[in-house]
Amino acid sequence: MTDIGLPARLSPELQRPEWPDGAEKPAVGACFAGYNRHRMTGDRRTVSHIVVLEERRVFGWAVVDPDGRYGDPAPEPKSP
Rank of each mutant, 00 (worst) to 15 (best):
M40N: 15
T41K: 14
I4P: 03
E54V: 09
I50W: 00
G68W: 08
P20D: 01
E18G: 04
A62L: 08
P12Y: 06
N36I: 09
G71Y: 06
L14A: 12
R39Y: 11
A62P: 00
H38Y: 04
W19V: 00
Y35N: 11
P7L: 08
V58E: 09
E13A: 13
D67S: 08
R37T: 07
M1S: 13
W19D: 02
A27D: 01
L6Q: 15
P75V: 00
P80C: 14
V64H: 03
P66Q: 07
P66L: 00
Y70P: 03
G68K: 09
E18V: 03
S48I: 06
R57T: 15
G34E: 07
D67E: 15
Y35Q: 09
E13F: 11
Y70D: 12
C31Q: 08
F32Q: 01
D43M: 12
W19I: 03
P7M: 04
I50G: 05
G34L: 09
F59V: 08
N36Q: 09
L53Q: 04
V47W: 02
S79G: 06
A33G: 06
G22P: 02
R45Q: 05
R45T: 10
G60P: 06
P17F: 14
G68L: 04
D21E: 05
V52N: 14
L14V: 11
A74K: 15
P75L: 00
E54M: 03
S79Y: 13
Y35E: 03
A74W: 06
P77N: 05
V28R: 05
P26C: 03
E55T: 12
G42Q: 11
N36R: 10
E54Q: 09
P77M: 05
D72P: 11
G68T: 04
R45N: 02
H49G: 03
P7H: 05
H38T: 09
G22D: 01
G5F: 12
L53R: 07
A30N: 10
V52Q: 14
A27R: 02
E24G: 11
V28T: 06
E76H: 14
L6G: 05
D21P: 02
V64Q: 00
G5K: 11
Y70M: 04
R44V: 10
V58M: 13
R57L: 15
D43G: 12
A62T: 11
R39H: 12
Q15M: 10
R9L: 13
G42V: 02
G68D: 01
T2D: 14
V28A: 01
A30L: 09
I4A: 02
L14N: 12
E18N: 07
K78V: 15
A23V: 03
P20G: 00
K25N: 07
R37P: 00
G60L: 15
D65A: 02
P66C: 00
H49L: 02
P80R: 15
P73W: 06
L14P: 10
L10F: 01
T41H: 13
A30M: 07
R69D: 13
M40V: 13
D65F: 06
P66E: 08
G22E: 01
V64D: 00
F59H: 08
P26A: 03
H38V: 03
P73R: 08
